[in-house]
Design a protein around this nucleic acid. Structure first.
Length: 572
RNA sequence: CGGGAUGUAGCGCAGUCAGGUUAGCGCGCUGCUUUCGGGAAGCAGAAGUCGGGAGUUCGAAUCUCCCCAUCCCGACCA
């Protein structure tokens, strides 16, 4: 490929609307352009990288025994109604009608579609296990698209769905995907950490996310160096420690004029935050509920949502708080709280002589004791684990770090096979529902994440398995004779079946070197003054900057050797 | 959806507070000349609904109102 015939609109300056390195570099290196918020055009150089990533995913999925499908993007509403998700998916699912008024969704995921086709094509235990996958576009009307391609409204996902006869089979399928994912990311130069995750909107039991540690990660991970416990903060457990029980005091009302926040209360009462019963009003599926937790902890809304069994929860607006507590925000508490459904964190039971709002303006109770002053009607773990909390397994203080989620694997269970009535006959001729798993990789996000992990101040440094080209040839000659010589070298490399791009543009050397560094192909070959003088060709590695010289005759062998060595670093 | 910021040529910005001729600058782009192993120089050019609409005014990029879009911070997710 000649660069003179290959659109590569590189930029010298950062685009003003990009914030993170990968987004800036993808635009500056001419890989993508923004179409509108959350939608991107892949230019030829960027598309090549996407293809490389897809090819690796496909190889590893096939190697793991998965089989590739291609599903429609426009999915009939009937499918979603069968599983119940037409109602529960919410506005992130883009719904449209055709001219006859039939409703469709632009697929945000494909559990229903794959379950439906499985219903059609499998009927016996002999057809199991089946692991069906596709690499296809997903549409999600994100509330906030962010960080370029990392969170967009339209993105390419590899999604796989496994169907097994029993849990043992599912465990096997799940583990084989776990291995495949590790291999996939390793082959792209990404070190991933699998962490325990919340199962979220997909439903199901066990679930792990594949995280790449990064300062720009949207997830917080809690890690135990001692025993290897790793979890998303949304899901993370921690070892509880409780204060000693005190001799029980009398329940009293205290005037607390305009003292509302835990901080204000701590200084007003001059005691530790753990004394307070923090009471927060949420709206769960439209109904107000109260969550009560020790004042030194935060509520984990994912855990709370699960404990309540709600499909959506949000903080109640002030007006609702005033309505249900009969007081301004800041004076809510579990005592005499008008019969509102209340969930207590496990920490509450252990508070003795605590302090909490009296559901009256400017009044708090002191000497509050669970059991005597209110009943713990529903108890659950609804606390957010934070850095320094003890590991739930070995009690060692955990560390927190941020991560980008590039993949996610789930054990779905029977949710879809039952709701959509997917059945097979087992050995005994009995009708049974297969058990399912699902497995996703964000392809575009993976590309951005690779850049986050592999760049310097000059530009991208592609790991060779995902580099758009392996070799970047720069011709610096001016005379017709010199240009011919550079052309010959390029043709020679090309006919050796090496992936090569040739910068044959009429630009100054600095400009060409700059573009080569920006785009970041692993091997640069320069045909310049050293070649025209004494026939020595310069080979320079983008990573590390090592320079080697060789002759015309040695070049192909040398390049093949370097390429093989580079690839070897990413072997699994 | 709540809070904050921004919108001027393909890209990056100035000009707006304090209204006043043909709206500037850098990069990029076109032509010519010289140069060219780390983002060259000169000369000559092309390219703009100043986000949109309404209003105030003799006169609006600039003031007022409404709308839209983009980006950042929080709740959803690959």
């Amino acid at each position: 490929m000649r660069l003179s015939r290959f659109p590569l609109p590189t930029l010298k300056e950062d685009p003003s609307d990009a914030v993170v390195a990968s987004h800036k570099l993808m635009i500056r290196a001419g890989l993508i352009r923004k179409e509108s918020a959350g939608m991107y055009v892949y230019l030829p150089m960027g598309f090549r990288v996407l293809h490389k990533i897809i090819a690796i995913i496909r190889e590893e999925m096939n190697r793991a025994g998965a089989v590739e499908f291609l599903m429609p993007e426009l999915t009939n509403a009937e499918l979603w109604k069968e599983s119940g998700r037409w109602n529960t998916m919410g506005p992130e699912m883009i719904r449209i009608k055709d001219r006859n008024g039939l409703e469709y969704a632009l697929a945000p995921t494909h559990e229903e579609a794959f379950t439906a086709i499985a219903r059609n094509i499998i009927s016996s235990y002999r057809d199991l296990p089946l692991n069906a996958y596709q690499i296809n576009t997903k549409f999600r009307d994100e509330i906030r698209p962010r960080f370029g391609v990392i969170r967009s409204k339209e993105f390419i996902m590899k999604d796989a769905y496994s169907f097994d006869l029993d849990e043992e089979g599912l465990e096997k399928s799940y583990q084989s995907m776990r291995v495949a994912y590790r291999n996939i990311f390793k082959r792209m130069g990404l070190e991933t950490i699998p962490v325990e995750a919340d199962t979220g909107a997909m439903g199901g039991s066990q679930s792990e996310e594949f995280m790449v540690p990064s300062a720009i990660g949207e997830e917080v991970l809690l890690l135990c160096d001692q025993c290897g416990y790793r979890a998303n903060q949304e899901k993370a457990d921690f070892k509880r420690t409780y204060p000693p029980q005190e001799p029980i005091a009398e329940l009293k009302e205290v005037d607390t004029p305009n003292i509302k926040t835990i901080e204000e209360l701590v200084s007003f009462f001059n005691c530790s935050a753990s004394k307070f019963l923090k009471s927060i009003i949420y709206i769960a599926d439209g109904v107000p509920v109260m969550a009560v937790i020790s004042g030194d902890r935060e509520i984990n809304e994912h855990k709370l949502k699960k404990a309540i069994g709600a499909t959506s929860i949000e903080l109640a607006p002030n007006s609702i708080v005033e309505e249900v507590t009969n007081a301004p925000v800041g004076f809510a508490g579990p005592i005499n709280n008008f019969g509102i459904r209340t969930i207590f964190d496990m920490s509450v039971r252990h508070i003795s002589n605590g302090i909490t709002g009296a559901n009256k303006k400017d009044v708090h109770y002191i000497g509050v004791n669970p059991g005597r002053d209110f009943t713990i009607s529903e108890e659950a773990d609804i606390a957010l684990a934070v850095e320094g909390d003890g590991c739930p397994k070995c009690e060692t203080p955990m560390k927190a770090t941020r991560g980008i989620e590039v993949g996610h694997i789930f054990k779905l269970g029977y949710k879809y096979s039952k709701s959509m009535n997917l059945t097979v006959l087992d050995k005994n001729g009995k009708t049974v529902h297969p058990i399912m798993g699902c497995y996703g990789i964000g392809v575009n996000r993976t590309m951005a994440t690779i850049i986050e992990q592999h760049h310097d101040e000059r530009g991208i440094i592609w790991p060779i398995p995902v580099a758009p080209f392996h070799v970047w040839v720069i011709g610096l000659g001016r005379s017709t004779e010199e240009i011919c010589k550079a052309d010959e070298i390029y043709e020679m490399i090309k006919s050796a079946n090496i992936e090569v791009i040739y910068d044959d543009r009429h630009l100054s050397p600095g400009f060409k070197f700059g573009d080569a560094d920006m785009v970041g192909c692993p091997i640069r070959v320069t045909i310049g003054k050293t070649y025209f003088k004494d026939g020595s060709i310069e080979i320079r590695m983008r990573k590390g900057g090592d320079i080697m010289m060789c002759t015309n005759e040695e070049l192909i062998e040398k390049l093949n050797k370097i390429i093989a060595t580079e690839f070897a670093q990413y072997n699994v």
